[in-house]
Design a protein around this nucleic acid. Structure first.
Lengths: 203, 203
DNA sequence: TTTTTTTATTAACATCGTTAATTTAAACCT
DNA sequence: AGGTTTAAATTAACGATGTTAATAAAAAAA
């Protein structure tokens, strides 16, 4: 009964086409309403066709995560090299992270809150080259520079990097997911958070 | 074809029975595997029976959230009154929050990361009495005491409370959801985070 | 006992991710 | 050309989800 038939000449090309459509679907319809079937409908293919280009849903989400991470990393690098003062670079990086999450909620949700294992085990995450991993490295570099310049207390770089990251992510995640709560202005929260992390709230 | 028939004599009683079973299901099987149908099977009732006691899934989740929040609030109050030093009380409260989330991941996920609107609009959240709201109030009180005692910088209580909360939540949420990432020891992270928030990371 | 109300069930719908079997189109080969 | 092989896409189906409407069963009220 198939009336129209299409051929995707090059696998890579079509993969990109699918990913573009997926990203658009995420942005337009939101993270919650995304589904393989809707995506298939959007690109006017049968749902099963997707399985010729992606192993499963997680595989597709992983690809999207990498796209998002790439975009994020590009901007983070610009932020990092723009400032001469390492501490100011860190401040800007933290602010940028939060801005990125808040301005691209759907992409952020895919990136940080989908299937918790799309990047494999912890060892695999650190060994395999991925945009997500490189983002972390870039961020860690900024933190390290601060420590080496004596602008941050001497302490375990890994721990400090992670603490700073989770604090920033917390602001994004909470204001994004906990919509019933009357949050203060996000800009104010973001700046206050960075201030507190760097200077502390004690007088 | 119904062979066995049961009667739930008192609506409230049965509601509790359902909630207990739901909580158990959450704890044993995990957040991801929870479903109304599994719950129904567990209590040996038909799935539709649940709809006689809860409007829909969100309504049930809300009830569970409130249970979790009640438990959380009880312990938070104990922490708050145990310490004489307000700043130490805050430190303990933050540590307890993180401990609670990390030790009860399933309940935490229900509480903070299910349907973002179970508590209604932001106005409704603040006006309606709820354990979730009261938890926030209790936490805010601890922060306020610190400010009034001059142990924290003078600033908007609401903003400061929220910033401290999201930072702590970030640690929980990230280590809970981002399982592919090789996090440092959570205890270390938690203590370092609180330290940083109160004293700052700058030298 | 008969009627009414409460409680529970069955059947069904729309959605989801996914697999197996099958059809269609293109590419290849004398 | 025509026939064969390979690649691409589709249909049908499975098991699972939340949810609604129609119906049966039991308890309470009359």
């Amino acid at each position: 009964m198939g009336v129209k038939q299409k051929r995707a000449r090059y696998k890579e090309e079509f993969r990109r086409e699918i990913l573009d459509a997926a990203r658009e679907l995420f942005i337009n319809e939101g993270y919650e309403k995304f589904s393989l079937r809707r995506l298939a409908e959007k690109i006017e293919y049968s749902p099963t066709t997707l399985y010729l280009y992606f192993k499963d849903k997680d595989d597709l989400l992983f690809a999207i995560c990498e796209e998002v991470a790439e975009q994020f990393l590009d901007n983070l690098d610009r932020v990092g090299t723009l400032q001469t003062d390492p501490l100011e670079a860190l401040r800007q990086a933290l602010l940028y992270l939060m801005e990125f999450g808040l301005e691209n909620p759907n992409q952020y949700k895919v990136f940080f809150f989908t299937n918790p294992m799309v990047y494999g085990t912890q060892e695999e995450f650190m060994e395999r080259d991925s945009m997500a991993r490189n983002s972390y490295f870039a961020f860690r570099k900024i933190v390290q520079d601060c420590i080496e310049a004596g602008r941050l207390r001497e302490m375990d770089t890994e721990v400090l990097t992670q603490v700073l990251a989770v604090a920033a992510h917390g602001l994004i995640a909470m204001t994004l997911f906990n919509r019933s709560f009357p949050w203060a202005d996000r800009q104010v929260l973001a700046h206050t958070l960075v201030d507190g992390l760097l200077r502390g709230y004690a007088p």
